[in-house]
């Protein structure tokens, strides 16, 4: 990882260096100064004056100097000073990047990675929890369904027991009422028979009493006494 970063930084520095070198004229040296410097290098102490500048030789020389100054620098090989400045800047920039930038980026990336990993863990955890909740919910739902089914079954059984109990009780009460009715009928019949018998007995005995009283004269009394004496004596 770190090697790739260093390689990327070096490549970036080279591109910057060559890019900057291509634009050296525009960036640091004017056409006038280039011309003066070129003129001084070619003609030494000879100076251009208003009197000799119109000379053809000078005009041609200036033209060549202009051409040479105007001529674009090499697109590949930079100027030395540019290499030096660019290299220094690259080194400084690379050092800064290695010292502060990369660790910061590394830290940010690590934090990001850790955050993503944490988020992923949390997501997994949340997913696990969700699964657990779902399982729990499904278990509770199953339990609820089971409990509901059990309650329904219990209610059905209770209803069946109640129905059976009521039916048995009703049958028992009906049987009891029938037995009671039969008993009442028998008792009423017995009572009626008893009353009738009593009335018949009363009538018969009353009639017998009246007959006996009507016939119990002195002679009958004497006969009864005689019978009594005879019976007692014969025992």
């Amino acid at each position: 990882m770190k090697k790739r970063l260093i390689f990327a930084s070096a490549l970036t520095g080279m591109l910057l260096m060559f890019g900057l070198a291509g634009n050296a004229l525009a960036a640091g040296e004017s056409l006038g100064k280039c011309s003066v410097d070129e003129y001084a290098e070619r003609f030494g102490a000879a100076e251009l004056t208003p009197e000799n500048i119109a000379e053809e030789e000078n005009i041609n020389a200036i033209g060549e100097i202009f051409d040479s100054c105007i001529e674009a620098p090499s697109p590949i090989i930079p100027e030395i000073n540019e290499v030096i400045w660019g290299g220094g800047a690259f080194v400084v920039l690379l050092a800064l990047m290695l010292w502060k930038g990369f660790p910061a980026v590394q830290r940010i990336m690590n934090e990001r990675s850790e955050k993503i990993a944490s988020d992923l863990d949390e997501a997994d955890k949340a997913k696990t929890e969700a699964q657990a909740v779902k399982s729990e919910y499904e278990a509770e739902l199953a339990d609820a369904k089971s409990a509901a089914a059990a309650i329904l079954e219990e209610a059905r059984q209770q209803a069946e027991v109640l129905r059976s109990d009521l039916q048995q009780r009703a049958e028992s009460e009906i049987a009891e009422m029938k037995a009671q009715a039969a008993s009442d009928i028998d008792a009423a019949r017995e009572r009626a028979m008893g009353d009738l018998q009593g009335e018949v007995a009363e009538i018969v005995v009353g009639a017998a009493e009246r007959v006996v009283e009507a016939n119990l004269d002195a002679e009958a009394q004497a006969r009864l006494i005689e019978n009594y004496i005879n019976q007692v004596g014969s025992n």
């Binding site: 006996v212 119990l216 009394q221 009864l224 019978n227 009594y228 004496i229 007692v232």
Partner: peptide, 22 residues
């Protein structure tokens, strides 16, 4: 007693009355 006799000797009773017959 209506008719007949009832005799009681101490605790013994000999009943031959019409009342008892009825």
């Amino acid at each position: 007693v209506m008719g007949g006799l009832l005799v009681q000797i101490e605790d013994e009773v000999i009943d031959g009355t019409v009342r008892t017959r009825l």
